[in-house]
Write a protein that binds this DNA or RNA. Structure first.
Lengths: 346, 346
DNA sequence: TTGTAAGCGTTATCAC
DNA sequence: GTGATAACGCTTACAA
């Protein structure tokens, strides 16, 4: 008893496996084994060790463990804050999924995507077991991941140059389907409010739109630049109407946020009937798009499935070595809302 | 040169400070010093070491470092996903602020707040330097933080029993002001769509509303339970109207999301003129509340200031020991939108 | 099954 | 300013 008290006293100095060992009357390595998954310990020792551990409030020191296992059980999540604002759920979803595999998320977020190099140098300091990258990554940065043999998966990004591990949603295909159905609904004159220049996703969407319009022998869209935010919608629409002198048949917005801004501007500022006089569509399928005031016609990305795929890919790589790079592509689905006159899905 | 090549070859096995030392022709401890802030190294050695480090792509091993400094430079962020959905920005904001102090955020998120105990046992494994808790924490859990001498700050939570380190927004006061101005605007019959039972913030808001109404000698509000989400708004309003047989003068919603759901339901389903026939208010001041379709009358929490305060408090504690517990209270401000007839601020 | 002892890659404490 | 050397708290052969 006095023994326990003495040890508890020392606890301010941190309880180690030695303390537990001496209280339980076993060796330190026995204690260590008790805290490992498939160890070889007798029922009796295990019980005594656990009792002692509980009495002392002992928890293994992760730093020491990771020092010789060379695994930190930590995964870096690199996100630009654009991502967190649009899909707040992916951060917590990833955290939940990974914690099921005993992995924790170490967060690296940044405003300016140019900061990525500085961020990466911070990343290397931590002995992360892998990384999820939901931000722009250049070829030389990808090369650094490979040189350091750190498993990584890109989220909704890809490299044009070659295949790297990535989970993406087929944006161009989504755009094609959307345009097809709008065309089938009778729209002829299109405008497009683009996303920010730096975004590959935005580029894919824009290209998909233009490509499909060309295929259908329709006039190319009037393109104005946006920034993925709510205000871009109103700014974009004003610019479009100013340029054309009248509303087009349809405005395709780079994402839902922009579309909702555009919609509000069309209705409140221009008193336009949407979709009577003008169709407006978004991309993403965020929860707000479903709200009664919007019921936006959009294209939904299967975010939940995508985060699951990321988890699966990364944990596999961590467990079993590199394997060959693969890209998992998910299809988006059109959400037939109340802001566009879509033709049949044929 | 051959030397460098040999070392680079071995890099697959991980570059250590010894590798750098031997390449630079100095001792290992010299290398170590070069990577410490206020070390004592000559310009010459520093230069040579850095050159060698760059050549080998050396980065200090954080696990080893934290093993004997007893600091991981990691801070745990405990959030229920309610928080992340409502304030997606706080996660990235905290990450940004802390990274300015050389601290990284280790994310612990959970759906069910009951999971907190299991989560905490995971937290202790990592040698975190501190914790931010944006989730419900009971007295015994607070005690555990204290017993383990882990600095922590509660975000928008507090303990009824005693003062612990916390950054909060004065919800009750916010509710009082809101009710006062609604009363000054001529409202007499109030209804309240509450937040989830478990939320202290929601409770404070409810109590503030009831207390102020009582003070003003107005009838107590009709209270219906909600869940902080968009659907709660419509469900709540239907229940209120069913119970009263007619709309009240004002519906105070526990948060913006609920208020927007309530607003949409009032306008689209009940064809009510808001704020002509009915006033609706929220709490929080989320970005969506400002959108043209809503222009919600609400009460804004100074989230940015609050995250800054958290950062300051926690980094101070990490640097300078415990200090005495303090609570930093911020005031909310009424956002005079277009969904309620508010009286003067007097 | 259990104990002994050698790392893991740093930082910290000394002499020099 | 610099270089030995002892921690830090664990995992992991290897021997018993």
């Amino acid at each position: 008893m006095a023994d326990i008290q003495a040890l508890i006293q020392r606890q301010a100095r941190r309880v180690t496996s030695y303390d537990v060992a001496s209280l339980a009357g076993v060796s330190q390595s026995a204690v260590s084994r008790c805290f490992q998954p498939g160890a070889s310990v007798s029922k009796a020792t295990f019980a005594r060790v656990m009792e002692a551990a509980k009495a002392l409030d002992y928890t293994p020191n992760a730093a020491a463990r990771s020092l010789n296992t060379r695994r930190s059980n930590q995964v870096a999540l690199l996100v630009s804050n654009l991502v967190t604002l649009h899909y707040p759920e992916i951060v917590t979803e990833l955290s939940r999924h990974f914690s099921g595999h005993g992995l924790r998320i170490l967060l690296f977020s940044f405003t300016d995507e140019g900061d990525i190099d500085r961020t990466l140098s911070e990343v290397w300091q931590h002995q992360i077991d892998g990384a999820i990258v939901a931000a722009r990554l250049g070829p030389q940065q990808v090369a650094e991941f490979e040189r350091r043999a750190v498993p990584f998966v890109l989220f909704n990004r890809h490299l044009r140059e070659r295949v790297v591990n990535a989970v993406v949603c087929d944006q161009a295909e989504a755009a094609r389907i959307l345009v097809s159905r709008l065309a089938a609904g009778g729209h002829r004159r299109f405008a497009l409010i683009e996303g920010p220049r730096g975004s590959v996703v935005a580029q894919d969407r824009s290209r998909g739109v233009s490509a499909r319009l060309a295929q259908l022998k329709l006039a190319p869209p009037l393109i104005v630049r946006g920034n993925y935010d709510y205000d871009s919608g109103a700014r974009g629409l004003r610019e479009i109407i100013a340029t054309l002198g009248a509303p087009p048949d349809a405005v395709i917005c780079a994402n839902d946020l922009t579309a909702m801004g555009c919609l509000d501007c069309a209705r409140h500022d221009f008193q336009l009937d949407v979709p009577g006089q003008l169709s407006i569509t978004g991309f993403d399928g965020v929860p707000q798009a479903g709200w009664l005031s919007y019921r936006l016609t959009t294209v939904r990305q299967p975010v939940e499935q995508m985060t699951l795929a990321v988890t699966e890919m990364l944990t596999d790589m961590i467990a079993g070595g590199p394997g060959r790079p693969q890209q998992r592509v998910f299809a988006a689905t059109v959400v037939d809302g109340a802001t566009a006159r879509l033709g049949p899905a044929f």
